Amino acid sequence: MRKVLREQGLSIVFALLFVFALLGQSFAGLGVHNENQRAHGASPIGYWEFVTSSNFVVDVAENWQSEFLQFFVFILATIWLIQRGSPESKKPGDQGPGSDQDQLVGRFARSRSPAWAKVSGWRRVLYSNSLLLVMGGVFVVSWWLQSVSGVVVYNADQLAHGQKSVTWLGYVTSADFWDRTLQNWQSEFLAVGSMVTLSIFLRQRGSAESKPVGTPHAETSTEGE
């Protein structure tokens, strides 16, 4: 158990942080929702009813889709684009998907390489792009959940104010939907851009996301090794 905790510590810690944060959001959200219910003369609801409601789902999905979009775009961009001096970038001249030898696929695969890296055809193509496909898939599903739950919440608010409800298409083309969506996207792109740029000049000793403290600013990735 101690070895597992030591070797898998990063994923375990972030999984626990995710669970605790999601639980905290659910209880805080329930409190806010029930305060609004009382303020409008309606009855408060229970925890399970809230976490299965569109109000909770839209907030969760709204954040998930922006996070996975961030990683999808970043993974795709770093195939072809570089940032000289950033540890988040490949070395200048290494743009592109790389050769089979660089990627250790086909006849260049090692004995411990994943099975689908050793074969050819659609399995290698699928596995070679599996990270991007999964990130993109989660983004699309989260975006769809946000839109479906969001239209329910939006229409409930419309009816409460004596206004007409809208269709799903009407909602995803509305200002309300894109206001909620783009305010998350811009913050994610700012965060990634800041990390890429600031890591050129700033350091964090011991972090895999930083170059060694004494590495020259212009040195990209591990080009000096």
Rank of each mutant, 00 (worst) to 15 (best):
61 A>E: 11
62 E>A: 08
62 E>P: 00
63 N>G: 13
63 N>H: 10
64 W>H: 04
65 Q>Y: 13
67 E>P: 00
67 E>Q: 10
68 F>Y: 11
68 F>W: 09
70 Q>W: 01
71 F>S: 00
72 F>W: 09
72 F>C: 05
72 F>M: 07
74 F>I: 02
74 F>L: 01
74 F>R: 00
75 I>K: 06
75 I>C: 04
75 I>E: 09
75 I>L: 12
76 L>D: 00
76 L>T: 07
76 L>N: 03
76 L>R: 01
76 L>V: 10
77 A>F: 07
79 I>E: 07
79 I>M: 08
79 I>A: 02
79 I>N: 04
80 W>H: 01
81 L>G: 01
82 I>N: 08
82 I>S: 07
82 I>E: 05
83 Q>V: 11
83 Q>E: 10
83 Q>H: 13
83 Q>N: 13
85 G>L: 10
85 G>A: 14
86 S>F: 02
86 S>P: 03
86 S>M: 04
86 S>Y: 01
87 P>T: 05
87 P>V: 09
87 P>W: 06
87 P>C: 11
88 E>C: 02
88 E>T: 01
88 E>Q: 07
88 E>H: 12
88 E>I: 02
89 S>Q: 04
90 K>R: 15
90 K>C: 10
91 K>Q: 13
91 K>L: 08
92 P>D: 05
92 P>E: 06
92 P>S: 06
93 G>K: 04
93 G>M: 06
93 G>H: 07
94 D>E: 15
94 D>Y: 07
94 D>P: 02
96 G>P: 04
96 G>C: 04
96 G>H: 06
96 G>L: 05
97 P>Q: 04
97 P>V: 09
98 G>N: 07
98 G>K: 12
100 D>Y: 05
100 D>N: 10
101 Q>S: 08
101 Q>K: 14
101 Q>L: 05
101 Q>V: 03
101 Q>I: 02
104 L>H: 15
104 L>R: 15
104 L>T: 08
104 L>E: 15
105 V>C: 12
106 G>R: 12
106 G>D: 04
106 G>T: 03
107 R>Y: 00
107 R>V: 04
108 F>Y: 15
109 A>V: 12
109 A>C: 12
109 A>E: 11
109 A>F: 13
110 R>F: 09
110 R>P: 09
110 R>L: 15
111 S>L: 13
112 R>G: 11
112 R>T: 15
112 R>Y: 15
113 S>D: 14
113 S>H: 14
114 P>S: 03
116 W>K: 11
116 W>L: 15
116 W>R: 14
116 W>C: 11
117 A>I: 00
117 A>S: 11
117 A>G: 00
117 A>C: 05
117 A>V: 02
119 V>K: 13
120 S>G: 04
121 G>T: 06
121 G>V: 04
